[in-house]
Write a protein that binds this DNA or RNA. Sequence first.
DNA 1: TCTAAAAAAGATGTTTTTATCTTCATTTCC
DNA 2: GGAAATGAAGATAAAAACATCTTTTTTAGA
Lengths: 148, 148
Amino acid sequence: MLSNAAKYAIRSILYLAMYTDRKKKIRVKKIAEELSTPQPFLAKILQKLTKSKLVSSTKGPNGGFYLSEANKQNSIWDIIENIDGTVKFEECFLGLKKCEDANPCPVHYIAVPFRKQILLDFKDKTIIEFSKEIELSGSVLSLKKIDI
Amino acid sequence: MLSNAAKYAIRSILYLAMYTDRKKKIRVKKIAEELSTPQPFLAKILQKLTKSKLVSSTKGPNGGFYLSEANKQNSIWDIIENIDGTVKFEECFLGLKKCEDANPCPVHYIAVPFRKQILLDFKDKTIIEFSKEIELSGSVLSLKKIDI
DNA sequence: TCTAAAAAAGATGTTTTTATCTTCATTTCC
DNA sequence: GGAAATGAAGATAAAAACATCTTTTTTAGA
């Protein structure tokens, strides 16, 4: 469903939402270690997210990535949109060009309700809301804290 | 979610379920045209499905692909399993190695209910049941019958 | 038995995704 | 102003997915 790039992006941003702000930044190296993602690949992704204003960064000593308050107002959907595009969520499950309620593919009514729900959830909640939920519920984010 | 290969496979099998049997076979060329799929690629996929006994075939003049009565008792899930494997449906939405009810990722409770439902639907119904529904409801299968 | 039609098998090519490596630019701190 | 730390940018590479091309095998039917 999501590409690796998008998965890494979402996890990174949720991680940054929890542990950073304008005054506290984290280096790629550290992020990649914490999330067990390939470091140079993650660097590329963070660069892209930075360009798109979904993440903030500063160079030089004590530099690194962080989420500004504005960044934290974005949604998971904004991240997906930026990295993967939205096509995969909009197109027919069986790949038909025209597939809609009036002209449904065989699995249309199985696939559509899910898509609607997941889109709602991902568009509705802001990153900051998600990160607060994570803190409350103790959801898993890092791979390092649990044995693989 | 599904690879192109799996999408083509499912559509082909549903198509074969509706229009073929031991006595009436259809050539790859025709199938590919009807479904607007790349012909040589589809041939490869049908070969694989044939090897796995999900589709039947005979060579030579008047040969082609068809579904035996046994083939028609399989499920959509059997096709997906054969072409893509089941990993994508089982793994965590964010790619975490350990993600379960006791240790959920941030989007765990958004993604899991869907997976369960779609798995149920795809495992439960046989190909023949699906094809009968398609006939009744007039679901879209071919791309050629509708304008793109 | 010969020929043509079809799938099967295997080799090859292309594109996308995933990933790495190297060099450049910026910033901090001395 | 110089050195070191950091991200940015661009080139390269490896793997997987997608697709095609060519040859072989099987079979029906004349």
